[in-house]
């Protein structure tokens, strides 16, 4: 009846950063590859492809998920937000701003996954303790920074967001 079956290619429409994109892909197309190869949104990085490093993390209906552990076909109907959707160089989001201020990156390979993960975290917990901040990023790996500045950036991002919410100058 309504069972959908597909083996060659399927038409997939995804809403990414508020824009609907339609592509013809194989069902085995990972969401991470759909974003990077089909949409050329290369802000989302790919490290391990088994869920461990966290750099491919995107927001699916606001919740952080590994884009390397989802198929593009499964992400239809959802709102996907990638790091490109969280601000621009001239108009950075609170987490991006905090990473700049706190020197939260070196090579930047891990950064997109941290930015998406922390964006969702401070939405849920606007005033975290440093213990909670550490736990929030325990699923993301960084081989450069030693994490201290990333932990600081979590707290600073929350602060910037609160200032913004109180009508202060967020940026």
């Amino acid at each position: 009846m309504t069972t959908e079956t597909s083996n060659t290619t399927v038409e997939v429409t995804l809403n990414v950063n508020g824009v609907a994109h339609t592509r013809e892909v194989e069902p085995r197309r990972l969401l991470s590859d759909f974003l990077r190869h089909d949409l050329r949104l290369t802000g989302t990085h790919v490290g391990c492809e088994h869920g461990v490093c966290g750099t491919c993390t995107v927001l699916v209906d606001g919740d952080p998920m590994r884009s390397c552990l989802m198929f593009a076909v499964s992400a239809q109907d959802a709102r996907i937000t990638t790091v490109e959707g969280l601000g621009t160089q001239d108009d950075m989001g609170p987490v991006q701003q905090a990473f700049v201020e706190c020197h939260g990156l070196q090579c930047g390979f891990c950064t997109p996954g941290f930015v998406t993960t922390i964006t969702a975290f401070i939405e849920e917990n606007p005033d975290p303790t440093s213990e909670e901040a550490r736990e929030a990023i325990s699923g993301n790996l960084c081989r450069c920074t030693g994490y201290q500045n990333i932990c600081k950036a979590v707290l600073r991002a929350a602060e910037i967001k609160r200032e913004g919410a109180n009508g202060g100058d967020g940026a």
């Binding site: 009846m1 959908e4 597909s6």
Partner: peptide, 19 residues
């Protein structure tokens, strides 16, 4: 690496899933 090709089935009801 990437998964090998497969046929994707997306049933909408439990009966369809069982079938």
């Amino acid at each position: 690496m990437k998964p090998a090709p497969f046929v994707h089935h997306s049933p909408h009801t439990l009966d369809e899933a069982v079938e």
